[in-house]
Computed example of a mutant assay.
Amino acid sequence: MITPAWCQTMARYNAWQNQWMFQAADALSPGERRRDRGAFFGGIEGTLSHLLWGDMLWIARFDGGPGPLKVNTSQATAEAYDWPALIAERPKLDARIASWAWSIGQDDLEGDLSWISGSTGAEMTCSRALCVMQIFNHQTHHRGQVHAMLTAAGCATEPTDLPYMPGEIPEWR
């Protein structure tokens, strides 16, 4: 279903999108970043905090490294990181995701993954490939929300389509 090369492309895409998105958000005042814009996690900062939290949760399941700081509640994920921490942690996490993507083989994408859900306390088991798709789909979903909020706030935004990603995407020649 998915391959290590797909994971590598998506890791590159993740880092590319986060770089410009955080630069655009950083140009806003703290009040504008935190302003409730009707998204599930309120505003831009809350959504980006949730996204960092979710990425840390999933990559920890994949690479066995450290997970997020707080438990799974809507409020905690939106407030888990203040803006300076978000700015500092995002590129480190993107590098961690990329390192994982470049270290895996096809066998690492097969079989099941099990974990204890922080929100329900129940043991969960899911296809490893589906879990890997989840991290990248979750990123794209919430960055789409942030893109819309940045646009509404008057920020200049960048393209979000994969063919515009800097560097070559060999599959799309």
Rank of each mutant, 00 (worst) to 15 (best):
I104W: 13
A27D: 14
C126I: 12
Q75S: 14
G38S: 12
G111R: 06
K70W: 09
V146L: 08
R34H: 13
V71A: 15
W53D: 08
G65Q: 14
R12T: 03
L52S: 15
L150A: 08
C155F: 03
W83M: 11
T73F: 12
G64E: 03
A95L: 11
D94Y: 02
L48G: 02
I44C: 13
A129N: 08
I97H: 05
A122T: 00
E123G: 03
I59D: 03
G65V: 06
G43A: 06
I135P: 04
Q19G: 14
W100R: 04
G31T: 15
F41H: 05
D108M: 00
Q106M: 10
F62D: 05
P166T: 12
L150K: 07
W58Q: 07
H141Y: 09
Q19D: 09
Y164L: 15
T77F: 01
F136R: 04
T47V: 06
A156V: 12
N137L: 02
R173H: 02
N72I: 09
L93H: 11
T157D: 12
F40Y: 15
E89T: 06
A27V: 11
G31R: 12
A88S: 03
S99C: 10
P163D: 09
M149I: 09
A27W: 12
G144S: 05
Q106I: 09
A60P: 10
W20L: 06
T151M: 13
C155M: 02
M21W: 09
Q8Y: 04
S117I: 11
R90K: 12
M1C: 08
S29Y: 15
S29W: 14
E89R: 04
T3H: 00
H141D: 07
A85W: 11
T151H: 07
E158T: 10
H147K: 05
S99V: 07
I87P: 05
N14W: 11
L28H: 01
R35N: 05
F22S: 00
L52N: 10
H141N: 13
H142F: 08
F41M: 00
A148G: 07
A27S: 15
R96H: 06
Q139Y: 06
W6Y: 11
I97G: 06
W16R: 01
G43I: 10
M133Q: 12
A129M: 13
G64Y: 03
T47A: 10
A129F: 05
S49I: 04
S74E: 02
R35Q: 07
E168L: 02
G118Y: 05
D108W: 05
W115S: 08
D36T: 10
I104P: 06
C7F: 01
I97L: 07
T73D: 10
T47R: 07
E158H: 12
F62M: 13
G144I: 09
Y81A: 08
L162M: 14
I59F: 01
P159A: 13
V132C: 03
I2L: 15
